[in-house]
Nucleic acid binder design. Structure first.
Lengths: 121, 121
DNA sequence: ATAAAGTATGAAGTATAGTTTATAGTTAGT
DNA sequence: ACTAACTATAAACTATACTTCATACTTTAT
């Protein structure tokens, strides 16, 4: 079980950001009832995976609420298997389309490059 | 030469968004001096290309200021050829890394799917 | 035992990317 | 000629995603 500082070290995310994500419902930590002196929150290793998923998914243009939906598709017990699979398939489609758009942008940049090289503009 | 309504129709972007992008310096339109009765702005076809680039690049996580940098690398006359090429190469690297992250996210989703299918959770 | 570092919480503040509203003038269709 | 649709501009407003601040308590190292 890890404290928030540990999460920050392992993921490279600022503590305040991790707290913000937790508050946004992207994951939860646990309070230890047997420890009465403090109010610290403990996180298990699963949270590291979630934070890394958040980091990656964000950098390719997913919003936090899309990521939340994705995470819930896996971890939530409130939705059926079929609903989970359909959410995951939806995300896969979204990713395919993002890959297409990235290739499109890449093509445009390659074109710009060749133009810059051709004419000494 | 196109009016803003035309740009909106061709790109699918709201007029207000196009105005916002123009105000943000992502492109410029032209006022026609010979027409004295109105104050309309006219855009040439290049602007359509820019708007499509903005749309695609945004959807894969580029910020407006990153996109501006990219567009300027091509259209600006104020920077040298080598500077342009180095900016474009930088963007290509950024795209490569985004593609890697997308593949990573895809892998994670595929894994989640297989788990959902395996155990009937 | 005390100072430095860590944790919790709430609230306010900031940056980015728009969207909406208000006002006013212009053009096009009938 | 007149109405509907279009254009311009500025300012206020909104949503998302953080970041900073203030306060207070806890743990760790020396």
């Amino acid at each position: 079980m890890k404290l928030i500082n540990q999460l920050a070290k392992e993921t490279g995310l600022p503590i305040a950001t991790i707290r913000f994500y937790e508050k946004s419902g992207l994951f939860v930590g646990k309070k230890k009832d047997n420890i009465k002196s403090n109010n610290y929150t403990y996180y298990d290793d699963e949270v590291i995976d979630k934070l890394e998923l958040i980091r990656d998914a964000k950098s390719v243009g997913f919003t936090l609420s899309e990521i939340k939906e994705l995470i819930n598709a896996w971890y939530s017990k409130k939705i059926t298997k079929d609903e989970k699979l359909s959410i995951l398939d939806g995300k896969l489609l979204q990713i395919e389309s993002k890959i297409k758009e990235l290739k499109q942008v890449k093509k445009q940049i390659a074109f710009l490059k060749s133009e810059v090289e051709k004419y000494d503009c």
